[in-house]
Structure formats: C-alpha cells, structure tokens
Design a protein around this nucleic acid. Structure first.
Length: 95
DNA sequence: CCGCTGACTGCGG
DNA sequence: ACCGCAGCCAGCG
C-alpha cells in the first residue's frame, strides 16, 4: 500500500469534527478506497495526532481492545453510548 | 502459490 | 437481537 493512500486516510480522519463520527466504511469511501479493512489496518499502524476514536463500526459498536478508552473519549465530546453502542443516526458525520 | 489474520460489512436465517 | 458466512485486501510465514 502506498504512502499516498495512507495520507489520504489520515486526512479524512483528521477532518472529522468533534462530536461526530464516521464508520470505517465511510472513511474508506471518502478516501477513495474499496475496502474498509484497509482503513482499520492503517489506523492500527499509527494513530498519533489523529482523532482515531471518531471512527467506529457501521453498526455503532467499537473494537473490543479499544472499547473502554474510545467510549470514554467520545463521551467527553457528547457522543454517548448505550450498552456500549453509539447511535449512528444521531452522530454520523454527513456534510 | 496457499492459508490465516484482522481497528470491517451487508445479507440471510 | 444474535449467529454465520462470503467478500474484502494487504501483510506475513
């Protein structure tokens, strides 16, 4: 995977406003990628300087190993989870 | 080349 | 609502 793709994904994530979220698929689409998995892979490499916690699964849940931290950071921005699940209809970022 | 793995997704039962 | 499954695609052994 090339450096350009990497940077495009990072740019999309960096642009998500506070209090809003995107799914991995959303990020992939906005970055011109076909696979959401690729987004997850890129995020796992380096999340420094990124609001990584604003990216979650399309069904409103988050990856198990990040769950606690991610929900806490989102809560701080007013994105509340009910039973460990975010309501995408309310918080998904649409321009 | 093959098979397995994962910060994923949508569909069908 | 809860599985399972196929499709996804780059990396690794």
């Amino acid at each position: 995977m090339d450096e350009e793709t990497f940077e495009r994904v990072r740019a999309v994530v960096a642009s998500i406003p506070p209090g809003k979220v995107l799914s991995y698929g959303d990020v992939a689409a906005r970055a011109g990628l076909s696979s959401p998995r690729l987004v997850g892979r890129i995020m796992s490499e380096d999340t420094a300087d990124l609001p990584w916690y604003r990216v979650l699964r399309s069904n409103g849940t988050v990856a198990e190993h990040l769950r606690h931290r991610q929900l806490e950071l989102l809560r701080a921005e007013g994105v509340l989870a009910r039973d460990g699940r975010i309501n995408m209809r309310d918080h998904r970022w649409a321009d």
